[in-house]
Computed example of a mutant assay.
Amino acid sequence: MFIRLNCFRIIFQRYHSTKPTPHQQAMMARGLPKRTPIEGVQHVIAVGSGKGGVGKSSISVNIALALSRLSYRVGILDADIFGPSIPTLLNLRNHKATTITKTNLIEPLINFNLKCMSIGFLTKSDGAIVWRGLMVMQAIEKLLRQVAWSPLDYLIIDLPPGTGDVQLSIAQLIPLSGVIVVTTPQELSLVDVRKAIEMFRLVHVPIIGIVENFSTYFCSKCSHEEKIFGENGGQLLANEFHLNILQSLPIDIHFRRACDEGRPIIQENETMLCSKFNNLAKQIIEFIHTKQTTTIE
């Protein structure tokens, strides 16, 4: 009995290691299918983490709006099949995508000058989605290929938590211009974010940098600063993987209220968070420009 359990432990560790061997990495790289661009979409930027509850969706929405304010044509795709947040964040709850184009594509909804698509626009808003992996993959491919995205300069994809089928399928189906990794300073978050970074590198997705959310808190009454979720976690992660910290975002009650009310914070000019998201949009553009210049050379 002991021998059987020990053999099972060795096999499990071998096939479920968080860091594949060089041979496994080479095999996976060779097995990647050909990535086909989404028609009419110039750049696709993913926002991921590996960890839930770190603010990916709210950051995705405000990145998209910041790019739109710079006169780019922008869309946002909610790739979280089981817990879509984009309908709430963009004040589109209870709205349905029912219009079909002449080319048999689904017309995305439009709000704040963004083309928006989520599984929440195709199903009951209060109903649980109980699907197996194959159905989830079919839904993701439908959201990528059967939506009238064109023409777009940027499509922002809000990834679900984890490093599973959805993330791998998107990385393998379409060419991603880059991914922004979101974390909090807390070690509990960093554990999962490390796995996400390794996954993106394994499937050859360029990492634009790290956004550290919930980095600090300033009391609204006395302005006392408190590092509720820890300190320097994002910077330690950046140093570990030789990445850049793009922005550090504080805990802000106005931001939370704006998200719940479907009122993106970047619509409020002259705020500190608005400035940070504008800078983040410019960092994305600079990354894309540098990448294109390097490719041409």
Rank of each mutant, 00 (worst) to 15 (best):
L144M: 07
K282Q: 11
D252Y: 04
L92V: 01
G53T: 06
K19G: 02
T123S: 13
I76L: 03
T271D: 09
K142R: 11
V61P: 13
H254P: 14
T99L: 10
H95G: 04
I86T: 06
T123N: 12
F112G: 03
G162V: 06
V74F: 05
E225S: 09
C116S: 00
D78A: 03
Q42I: 09
G50S: 08
S169T: 15
T294Q: 14
L173Q: 14
V61K: 03
P160S: 02
Y15G: 06
A128M: 05
Q267L: 15
F200E: 07
E187V: 09
G31M: 04
S57V: 01
A29Q: 09
L89T: 02
C7Y: 07
A171R: 10
S60F: 00
V182L: 10
D252N: 09
A139P: 01
M27D: 03
L5M: 11
A46C: 11
V41N: 08
M272P: 02
R30C: 00
I106Y: 11
T183S: 15
H43P: 02
L190K: 11
I170A: 07
Q138N: 13
T36K: 15
R194V: 01
G53K: 12
Q186L: 05
N232K: 15
P185Y: 03
T216N: 11
S223I: 06
R73Y: 04
G209D: 05
I285W: 02
T99H: 12
L249P: 06
P206S: 11
L134I: 15
M135H: 12
D252H: 01
N104H: 14
P87A: 00
A128I: 02
D165W: 07
I110C: 06
R256S: 15
I288G: 03
I140E: 14
P185G: 10
I251Q: 13
P33N: 10
H16D: 06
I63C: 03
H43T: 10
V182K: 00
N91H: 06
Q138T: 12
K56C: 02
Q283H: 03
V74D: 01
P161K: 04
V147G: 12
A196L: 14
I174M: 08
T36P: 04
